[in-house]
Amino acid sequence: MMPAIKIKGLGHWFGNGDLRRQILFDLDLAIAPGEIVILTGPSGSGKTTLLTLIGALRAVEQGSLRLFGRELHGASDDDRIALRRRIGFIFQQHNLLGFLSARQNVEMALELDPALQASERRDLATVMLAKVGLGERLDHLPSKLSGGQKQRVAVARALVGNPDLVLADEPTASLDKVTGHEVATLIERLARERGASILLVTHDPRILGIADRIVAMEDGRIVDAAENRQD
């Protein structure tokens, strides 16, 4: 089966002139469809940079990065925007639109799909919010929700469009332990239901258990790619 992500010899630099510095070195990584991978490593090791490259948010400079079989090295802006629509992003901050209700925020992920009618978007968003436990809070504005509830809305928004891949960067970092664990298992459960791959960056040891595989980075290199020992 074709991997969801296939990376070969990926390198990346930041800065210009004298300040130009290599951040990622010769990375190789493959993630299968439906596979759940956790990326760990010390701060500054390049995890976020790797995630933004995979998410087609940055242009690939060196090496090959194939996303759903499409080469991202040299891809046009339009191609990258189209590919992003197949990815669900979950950020450290929820980044919900403050002037939209929970349901309207989730619907934003569906409005990009011209095949969906307004009523279908509404129903899908309603069902998704019920699945993340917010069936009673559909019309609440983000300011009326707790931190954990807001992050669950963000999870619903990332997953409602049935993405092939979920990219999450420290999604539990702004939450307390219990809430963080709830949100992480929610992401796992919903992604498994849909057969979506997950690449999730975290420092939080309590949520490593959701992974099929843990990949560790250090100084821009992958140092240890092992099956999850807890399995």
Partner: peptide, 15 residues
């Protein structure tokens, strides 16, 4: 005031 929200929309595939 909504830069991060707009950026999120761009990440989601909004042009």
């Amino acid at each position: 005031n909504h830069l991060s929200e707009y950026a999120t929309l761009k990440a989601m595939g909004y042009t």
